[in-house]
């Protein structure tokens, strides 16, 4: 009897060892505190931004070389959308991480950001060049493509679905090149609709 109990304990120990190893490996190699809500909010900001650009600022890019007298407003608007999305993502992640008793700033989140930064900076420099040369039509597809590439990289360090979202953004950006006149719509589809769908999916899949 005593032996049997001992044996059972051993078996349980091995199972526990394996499940602990698995969770350790995942926790230390993937940033799992990305929140679905942050995706949904970023999508809403993106859609609002596109709406304001089009209907309030009357921004209707229809060709590569589109002359728009007051592009400053649009740039400010885009930066505001970007900043709001980033702040929201950090706040939601921080909450999710602290709920799990983890820190948001660790070796894996650093690596995640470093891997996202490379394509984002390259895309950013290209976009500054476009702005300086009035090539406004190319901004939407370029931002989609390079954002998509950064998500594709990020997928290695967080939930796999992020990589899929990267493919969607890259795809939208590439198609957009052939239909430059619809830049704002593609931009709204990528940064708005895709984020919202992704956020809802993550929320249902990982957060309930």
């Amino acid at each position: 009897m005593y032996l049997k109990v001992l044996f059972m304990n051993k078996e349980k120990d091995h199972l526990k060892d394996i499940s602990e190893i698995r969770s350790m490996m995942e926790r230390s190699s993937k940033f799992l505190s990305l929140s679905g809500w942050a995706g949904i909010m970023a999508g809403i900001y993106g859609l609002t931004g596109a709406y304001v650009a089009h209907f309030v600022f009357n921004f209707k890019p229809d060709s590569t070389k589109y002359l728009f007298y007051d592009f400053g407003e649009i740039i400010l608007l885009a930066l505001a959308v970007l900043l709001l999305s980033l702040i929201t993502a950090v706040l939601f992640s921080k909450k999710k991480a602290s709920d799990k008793g983890e820190k948001i700033w660790n070796s894996i989140s650093k690596r995640l950001l470093a891997n996202m930064a490379v394509p984002l900076i390259v895309g950013g420099v290209l976009i500054i060049f476009y702005i300086a040369n009035d090539l406004y039509g190319l901004i939407a597809p370029t931002s989609l493509i390079f954002y998509g590439l950064s998500l594709y990289n990020a997928g290695n360090f967080t939930i796999r679905e992020v990589r899929f979202m990267g493919f969607v953004q890259i795809g939208l950006g590439l198609i957009n090149i052939w239909f430059l006149e619809y830049g704002l719509i593609f931009w709204a589809l990528g940064f708005g609709v895709t984020h919202i769908l992704y956020g809802i999916y993550i929320h249902i899949r990982h957060e309930r």
Binding site: D17, E20, I21, M24, M25, S28, I108
Partner: peptide, 13 residues
């Protein structure tokens, strides 16, 4: 357990 943990996290980092 702790040694196993150290090995697990270093195996993937």
């Amino acid at each position: 357990r702790i040694r196993l943990g150290i090995m697990s996290v270093l195996a993937v980092n």
